[in-house]
Nucleic acid binder design. Structure first.
Length: 701
DNA sequence: GAGCACTGC
């Protein structure tokens, strides 16, 4: 086997690193950068003054690369070479090359902001621009100034982004390391198809009939399209004339597929048989399928985005970027020259696609990240001026500050509070960490740990419609609890407690249509949270007991009260006379209860007056997902706080945001969105809502 | 009366 390309550049790399605090490495696929950079610097003596940290955006990558490097150095994993990922730390005093997820390094900088144990920090796959990598990039820039004499930072990036990263680090050198990819011929469509599934299928059949052996990887946007495609493709292949071409098998590949079905794509095709793998962008970076020679690229991807002006998430189908398109094409050139069929014209690639995907930091709610930055004990961070490679909008940062203020993580001047510091220690969204802290005060910590773990693991409970229920009962399956009418958080608690009573049997999950993977994950999260809470808590904590329902709190009052405090930034009030809600915040939105909710109406058919929600999601309409009923007396203090809120003070007075007009216009969405109410009732609600919002918005009046 | 790309602490 040929020597890895990167080793021919060893002297050049060592020389450049010696002379510069920051170096950008553009390492193409197959260059060996992930395994070799650390070893090169190890050989050059950088591990004498500290360890080398290499971050990866994914857990599996951190583990497999660490294994490989340990093997190459002939040492046992966890000794000289180790890795750290959530729930698992395989390092020791001897470890001098440490692979870890970017999130883990970020956590480490919480207790040691200068990261003094490291002489070298390598941010690998930085071009993927994960939220954590972006924050690390900003922190590295600061750190370089403070530790210029004894820290080296290496950043690996994609071709299109190298110059930008270099500029960010005041023009640091950029080294290009060629890869070992085979050439991939790109074939463009003359126009964009109107029906993607159909067009993908035609192209796939074309390849099958006319092209020599080699597997086909098809990129689509989601499970629905994939399932359709798999079904149709199998049908069409069966109808092909016997003996006219080789055999074929078709596999779907996406994230919600159970692991045992995902693994199928790793076994090679039987002789004289072509494999078709119909995948989401999971096959772009996370999973590498061997044997692929042909790629069919739809040019689209499903992306979750957060809108800071409404506080809502949406899941949109958007065009991919050029970096993404090239990454997809590259999947065809791993074993020999390949072909990539792009179902869009060349001009679309050149003129419409963005250079790179919009970084996650510009598509997410930043409450957690802002809290994190505020909690790092380096005094000179002004969050609105923090130096990001691609800064998030001011609106997004202000949204984060408002949210943090409402849940007591920062005070009215934007300073982090004691509560905020404790919250930052917990690997949870701020609302959930606030809930835990309040639950500890109120004496329902154990229950809150369960709920937050279940939400954190995103456990999905499938609706048990009457038909399914009947069927299950006949099969003597247990029936899942329903939250006793209080809502989805309580249901999650009850489901976990049932699983606990079933001794955490995986079969119990399968029987109840729950994903084993996510239930196991929530158990891990719960254990980790318990440990952290015990470490940071003062006084005795009740984390293990009370798994079973306590008589004294059968309507979950304490827990719901803790949730109300934690979700102080996610409250909603029911509209008069019907079951629509408006959110109670600095921008009120008209929203509906998501139909999947188990929240119950009273005997008059009315839903609770006040609820807290876990998230707002805009699909066919704006919905609140995961709800819990709360009481008005718990809500009132939060509303008082809302009235006092002043964004200029929160953002440290750096710049005014006095655009009241904008706020007013954006605050209230169109009355059209309100449903099942007569025009009169609607108008009444509208006025009430508008008035109450305006009162709340005019601070000081 | 709806619908879930992908990661991760």
């Amino acid at each position: 086997m040929a020597v890895l390309p990167i080793l021919q550049f060893e002297d050049k790399i060592a020389e450049t690193v010696a002379e510069n605090p920051v170096v950008v490495i553009i390492g193409e696929t197959g260059s060996g950068k992930s395994t070799q950079l650390s070893q090169i610097l190890h050989r050059r003596g950088y591990t004498r003054s500290g360890a080398i940290a290499v971050t990866q955006p994914r857990r599996v990558a951190a583990v497999t690369v660490a294994r490989r490097v340990a093997f190459e150095l002939g040492s046992r994993l966890g000794e000289e070479v180790g890795y750290a990922i959530r729930f698992e730390d395989r390092t020791s005093d001897k470890t001098c090359i440490k692979y870890l997820t970017d999130g883990c390094l970020l956590r480490e900088s919480l207790s040691n902001p200068e990261l003094n144990q490291y002489s070298v920090i390598i941010l690998d796959e930085a071009h993927e621009r994960s939220l954590n990598t972006d924050i690390l990039l900003g922190l590295m820039k600061r750190l370089i100034n403070r530790r210029s004499s004894n820290l080296k930072v290496l950043i690996t990036s994609a071709t299109l982004d190298g110059v930008k990263v270099s500029k960010f680090f005041s023009g640091c050198p950029v080294l290009n390391i060629p890869g070992t990819l085979f050439p991939v011929e790109k074939l463009y469509s003359t126009e964009r198809p109107t029906n993607y599934v159909e067009c993908c299928m035609k192209t796939a059949l074309d390849v099958h009939v006319h092209e020599p052996p080699g597997d086909v990887l098809i990129f689509m946007t989601g499970q629905d399209d994939i399932d359709k495609m798999v079904f149709k493709l199998e049908e069409r292949i069966q109808n092909l004339e016997e003996g006219s071409c080789m055999d074929a098998v078709v596999f779907p590949l996406h994230g919600s597929l159970p692991p045992e079905l995902q693994i199928r794509v790793f076994s090679p095709a039987p002789p004289n048989c072509r494999r078709f793998i119909v995948a989401t962008n999971i096959a772009e970076t996370s999973l590498t399928v061997d044997g692929v020679v042909y790629v069919i690229d739809s040019g689209f991807v499903k992306q979750r985005q957060y809108n800071p002006s409404t506080g809502m998430y949406s899941l949109d189908i958007v065009q991919i970027s050029r970096v993404q398109a090239d990454q997809r094409a590259g999947r065809a050139g791993r074993t020999r020259p390949g072909k990539c069929y792009r179902l869009y014209p060349r001009t679309v690639y050149d003129e419409e696609f963005l250079d790179a995907t919009i970084p996650e930091i510009q598509r997410s709610s930043l409450a957690g990240s802002v809290l994190y930055l505020k909690s790092i004990s380096l005094s000179d961070i002004d969050i609105l001026k923090f130096d990001f490679l691609d800064p998030p909008s001011r609106e997004s940062l202000e949204d984060a500050l408002r949210q943090l203020y409402l849940i007591d993580a920062i005070d009215e001047n934007g300073e982090i509070t004691e509560i905020g510091k404790a919250m930052a220690e917990l690997p949870l969204e701020p609302s959930l960490s606030r809930t835990l802290i309040e639950a500890n005060e109120l004496g329902c910590l154990s229950q809150a740990l369960t709920v937050t773990s279940m939400l954190s693991a995103e456990v999905a409970i499938r609706p048990t419609h009457s038909k399914i229920k009947e069927k299950k009962r006949k099969q003597s399956f247990s029936k899942l609890p329903d939250g006793s009418g209080w809502g989805d958080h309580i249901q999650l608690l009850q489901v976990y407690e049932s699983w606990d009573r079933a001794d955490y049997d995986p079969n119990w999950c399968t029987d109840n249509d729950l994903q084993v993977r996510s239930m196991m994950f929530s158990k891990d999260v719960r254990k980790q949270l318990s440990q952290i809470v015990q470490k940071i808590g003062k006084g005795p904590l009740d984390v293990e007991s009370a798994m079973r329902l306590k008589k004294s709190d059968k309507d979950y009052k304490k827990l719901r009260r803790a949730l109300c405090r934690g979700y102080g930034n996610q409250l909603a009030e029911r509209m008069l006379l019907h079951n629509g809600y408006h959110t109670l915040g600095y921008r009120s939105q008209l929203v509906q209860v998501h139909p999947s909710s188990v929240l119950e109406a009273d005997e008059d058919g009315q839903l609770p007056d006040y609820v807290v929600y876990h998230e707002l999601i805009n699909t066919s309409r704006p919905f609140m997902r995961n709800l819990c009923a709360v009481e008005i007396s718990w809500v009132q203090p939060i509303l008082k706080k809302l009235e006092k809120m002043n964004i200029d003070k929160l953002s440290g007075g750096s710049g005014a945001s006095e655009n009241n007009e904008t706020i007013e216009n954006e605050t209230i969405s169109s009355p059209k969105q309100a449903v099942d109410a007569s025009a009169k009732v609607m108008a009444l609600c509208w006025e009430t809502l508008k008035r109450s919002c305006l009162t709340r918005l005019c601070h000081g009046h």
